[in-house]
Design a protein around this nucleic acid. Sequence first.
DNA 1: AGTTTCGGCGCC
DNA 2: AAAGGGCGCCGAAACT
Length: 548
Amino acid sequence: MELAALGPDGLPAGPVVREPDLVAAVRARPRVGRWVWRSTAEVYPRLLAAGVRVDRCYDVEDAETLLLGHEGRYGEPRSAAAALARLRGGPVPPDPPQRSAAPGAQSSLFEPEDAGLPLADLLAVYAEQQRRHDRAEHPERMRLLTAAESAGMLVAAEMNRAGLPWSAEVHRQVLHDLLGERYAGGGEPRRLAELADEVSAAFGRRVRPDLPADVIKAFAQAGIRIRSTRRWEIESLDHPAVKPLIEYKKLYRVWVAHGWSWLQDWVREGRFRPEFLAGGTVTGRWVTNGGGALQIPKVIRRAVVADPGWRLVVADADQMEPRVLAAISRDPGLMEVAGRESDLYQSVSDRAFSGDRDQAKLAVLGAVYGQTSGDGLKNLAALRRRFPRAVAYVDEAARAGEEGRLVRTWLGRTCPPAVRATEDPAEEAGIPTGDEEAADTPQWVAGYASSDARARGRFTRNFVVQGSAADWTLLLLAALRRACADLAAELVFFQHDEVIVHCPKEEAETVVAAIREASDLAGRLTFGQTPVRFPFTTAVVECYADAK
DNA sequence: AGTTTCGGCGCC
DNA sequence: AAAGGGCGCCGAAACT
């Protein structure tokens, strides 16, 4: 591999050095302030496997993705090779297909094909990216965004390596308590079989509760028409099958998604190892591959247990999204409310909803999600009177989305463009091709285009808040990572507004303080000078389930 | 037989 | 009471 030192101007300072071994090359340079490389996900795990950590990096391909998005070129190939081709005017290679995680896969069996570039080419792409930052709407924020997401990628790689402490024994006990014994042959466990029998008895015939079509037919025969078997649709029905059916669905979910086979597939040597991917969604939220790590049911969290003598510091940002809305909209009233650490929804309700916290929360979330009906909509008017700039901010984002314009997060992450209408005029109008629905067509077509636009408006309305929150969490994670660097503590889990640090019990209070400091720093760095605070609820526990 | 889509539901 | 934003995962159903 080739290495070059960069000067303060970002240009190479000194000769290119050839090194035979990545690990040795990095290990030999512990004082490097920042490593510029093509892809953190491909380089950093190899370093971590050898016990080498780095302080900072710049991920060229991640920056390429963010810059393309900012330039309204979402979806163009984002590899360093593609960026080089655009720079040099050659044919742009498509991105290689995404590899998907296999259960229990610790690492790829084969070395990935080397997608690296000669150093001179990589530096040319890097230099051009610096110029593209300069042309961004807010260059300094864009620089912060690419730096922060690169830091997030270091955090993700380190969390992937650490894994989430997991007690298979406790997990099996929880499964047994909920589901009963397993029967040989891999069929339903005892409790599910019993509930299926109860459902069948209530209908007076054999019904498979896990087959929606079967359940809909059975209700129809009992004189009850339902459109789906979603819980909210059936839970109010007056029928003896409802109670065991809902219980069945709840337990069935645990069985298929987090049951014994999940345990077999995803837990090894006391750790659950999902693959975290920073910035995996359009809004900048993270995703995980494998094991549904961001959807661990509350009952299963009993199995997340710290090592002996260690603790889990579970930290949850309080009312993160409305606080972010305050910071990005600069609404004076909402900033004042968000400047206190006390319950934001309670403060909002004291000002606009005569103390009804639930109404206030619904109104705020409705404003952020683009609610179109129900109480939240009615309460939106009250919210708008007291916090006009905040509501106007998301309204403007929604209008931009409906009109096909782009919206950005505070730091500059940009939403995808509106999808171009298809060539097929029938499809474009949403006309179904099947004959049986033809009778419905006129009314449906009349509202279709605008409902499509409204859907994009709801998306962009939410994007500016959810995405700016993701901006802030990147800075938070980067600061917390730095604070943990001198401790034995390790970040082991992150989910949108919640982070878990695994540490020796003696370090727990230090970590709690570090979270508070990281939150303050992240708020200042991300949003500049505002009164908005981002308090956390933290719990020092041995078991994740005890955190709330 | 293998692959994609759907329905449903878990999390925030 | 009603069903808004972002995801991943599973088995079944619907396809090639």
